[in-house]
Amino acid sequence: MRLSISHETAYHYDDEVRASIQYLRLTPHDSDRQHVLSWELDLPRQVRAQIDPFGNIFHVLTLDEPHESIVIKARGQVDIDEKSESEHESQSAFPFLRMTRLTEPDAALREFAAQQCNQRRDRNALIDLMHGLNQHIAYTPGVTKVDTSAAEAFEAKAGVCQDHTHTFLACARSLHVPARYVSGYLFSENSEHLASHAWAEAWIDDAWYSFDVTNGLSRPERHLKLAVGLDYLDACPVRGMRRGGGFEQMHAKAVSMPRIQVQRQ
């Protein structure tokens, strides 16, 4: 499947911002299941691409002069191999056993993971865990924030894709299975809509397998990966700081161009 993507994020401020810095992870890279045909960022100024410790392509946008808005645009074409179920990497998976504040499991999460998987640590066990979390945490926008932890979302039984992913990571790592946060896009063929999304990957049988708790999907057929990390803070597409500006309004939209090529044999 070929996706032609246009993504725009705009920030508008009530007052003048004296200076700001934005960390951008909006550029996909080639892997076993996706091939980047073209990609470019349209930013207020030219910046240099870098590679972070997790292998993500990222850019640092620094604006030292006063400004009242920032518009960040990304566009390109990426081929997705719908038949590929896993990805192989040379980097060690063991750093993804590390807990973070957002993914630290409490007693309830540890017990839930143990009940769902018992002594199993294979892909089917994690698929059962994925479905169990999907049933336990209702998709409910607006009830959590970017700093809501996995334990808090699990207790509230409500959240969004970020919370679904954090709870999966907490459970998997409590079972000593390396797991990581993934940010990217999900294409919905029914509505021809491309949405920013988050899901998890777990290291099983020497490969990374996807687990989209929100949609109950274990095959990343319509997922385009941008970045990975220990949690949302490592992998979110845009993260920044500023001096001044007052109240901030953020508008983001991601669309797939009309031409979608589905490649099947």
Rank of each mutant, 00 (worst) to 15 (best):
L224F: 01
Q115G: 00
F211T: 09
D205W: 03
V182I: 07
V160K: 09
Q116F: 09
G142L: 07
S210T: 13
A74P: 02
F168E: 01
Q46W: 02
E16H: 01
R123N: 11
S196V: 01
D42C: 00
I57W: 02
L102C: 05
A207W: 07
A10T: 09
T144R: 13
D147G: 00
A170P: 08
H197Y: 05
A227S: 02
L102D: 06
G240D: 14
T62M: 07
S31C: 07
F154W: 10
I70M: 12
D79F: 14
G132W: 00
T62L: 07
I204G: 11
V47A: 08
F112C: 01
A125C: 05
Q265R: 14
I5C: 00
D163N: 09
R222P: 01
E155I: 11
S31H: 03
A156W: 08
W203D: 03
E8N: 12
L109P: 03
V60G: 08
R98C: 10
V228D: 07
R239W: 06
Y185T: 02
Q115T: 08
T148K: 12
A172G: 02
R48F: 05
P28A: 09
S90M: 10
T144A: 08
K73T: 08
D30R: 08
L43Y: 02
D128H: 13
L169H: 08
L217I: 11
T100P: 03
A151D: 11
G132V: 05
L26A: 12
D81C: 10
D212M: 03
A138R: 15
V60N: 01
F168P: 02
S188Q: 11
F94M: 13
A158V: 04
F187C: 00
A151G: 11
P53H: 07
R222W: 10
L61A: 01
E248C: 13
R243K: 14
G132T: 04
S196F: 05
S218P: 00
I5K: 01
E89M: 11
E8W: 00
R243V: 13
I21Q: 14
E104Y: 09
S86E: 12
L37C: 03
E85R: 15
S183Q: 08
A235Q: 02
S188I: 07
R18A: 15
L194V: 03
